[in-house]
Amino acid sequence: MATVSGQTDTRHFRTLFISDVHLGSKAAKTDFLLDFLRTHEADTIFLVGDIVDGWRLKRSWYWPQDCNDVVQKLLRKARKGTRIVYIPGNHDEFLRGFPGTHFGGIEVAERMIHETADGRKYLVLHGDEFDVVVRNARLLAYLGDWAYDTAIAINFLLAGFRRRLGMPYWSFSSWAKQQVKQAVNFIGEFQRVVAEEARRNEVDGVICGHIHHAVMEDIDGIHYINTGDWVESCTAIAEHPDGRFELINWGHLVGAAKPAGRLVMAPVPLTLASIKQEADEDIRAA
């Protein structure tokens, strides 16, 4: 099968970290994520929260075939021996009631300490517990989520217009988010607080998601890593066999032509129970 990127060689890593896919949202770039998963393998994959967007699914059901394909791709990787750890975020908080549970070979955990190949220790968590808006003002968070949906819709229209004019891709939603959050120093404060949590846990660094801002930097002696997202930037963090980290930016694909084909709605709603049942049946049949 041809990939969106045209890349055919598979890269293999010790660990991959992916977050903020928002399956169930029309903004989720599932085709690009599928392309990435086809050409990237790892011994361990951490899903660092907001993989499924339960908030949007509660408002209105949207689950095209691409969403099924992403879930099935991950389940197949787990069946073939990849360790997959799912750390829920605020949008998929319904999974937080299942710590230690395995669904089709995918392990659910609230947070985890990851040790790199060179012996460093990293706290892995989604990060929403350090977002004061989400933690203390749920209604305000939902309103912000609605505003973000609106920005994404504007982004879609602008991207189509710029593509017709032969102009490069530019994310209005990302620009708007950066302007607002820079004005209130949100990103910097979030990074500082998360780094402090890593320090309290006596680890070398922290790997999180949540704010859709991919970066790797040192904050007062703590190696802070944010995985970014698969709504705008399409980024992931990879750990090489020697323990080195790499920020993979799949964002150059955003705005490219979507592969030929149509979205097919799942005939039966895909629930947590049905995912587990299907995966367990696959494992028994393997």
Rank of each mutant, 00 (worst) to 15 (best):
F156C: 01
F156M: 07
F156W: 10
A159W: 02
G160C: 03
G160A: 02
F161S: 00
R162C: 00
R163N: 03
L165H: 09
M167P: 01
P168C: 07
Y169G: 02
Y169P: 03
Y169L: 08
W170A: 01
W170F: 03
S171C: 09
F172P: 00
S173M: 04
S173V: 01
S174K: 03
W175S: 06
A176D: 00
A176S: 14
A176H: 07
A176W: 06
K177S: 15
K177C: 03
K177P: 01
V180R: 15
K181M: 04
K181D: 07
K181E: 08
K181H: 13
K181T: 07
K181W: 09
A183K: 14
A183V: 07
A183F: 08
A183E: 05
V184S: 12
V184W: 05
N185A: 10
N185R: 14
F186M: 09
I187P: 02
I187W: 10
E189S: 15
F190V: 04
R192F: 05
R192G: 01
V193H: 12
A195T: 09
E197I: 05
E197P: 05
E197R: 14
A198G: 14
A198M: 11
R199F: 12
R199P: 08
R200P: 08
R200N: 14
N201P: 07
E202M: 09
V203Q: 08
G205P: 07
V206K: 09
V206Q: 06
V206W: 01
V206R: 02
I207S: 10
C208E: 02
G209R: 09
H210N: 13
I211A: 14
H212D: 00
H213K: 08
M216K: 09
E217K: 14
E217G: 01
D218K: 12
D218P: 14
I219W: 10
I219T: 06
D220V: 09
H223T: 15
Y224S: 06
Y224A: 09
I225M: 14
N226P: 10
N226A: 10
T227K: 02
G228Y: 04
D229W: 09
D229L: 05
D229Y: 04
W230Y: 03
W230C: 00
W230T: 00
V231E: 03
V231A: 08
E232P: 00
E232V: 10
E232H: 08
S233F: 00
A236E: 03
A236I: 10
A238M: 09
E239P: 13
H240Q: 15
P241I: 06
D242S: 12
D242N: 14
G243Y: 11
G243C: 11
F245E: 08
E246F: 08
E246M: 12
E246Q: 15
L247E: 03
N249P: 02
W250P: 01
H252L: 08
H252C: 04
V254D: 01
V254H: 05
G255H: 05
A256R: 14
A257L: 10
K258E: 15
K258N: 07
K258A: 15
P259Q: 12
A260L: 08
A260N: 05
A260R: 13
A260F: 04
L263S: 08
L263R: 15
M265C: 06
A266Y: 05
P267K: 07
P267S: 15
V268H: 15
V268A: 13
P269N: 13
P269A: 11
P269F: 13
L270D: 10
L272R: 15
L272C: 05
S274T: 14
S274W: 11
S274F: 05
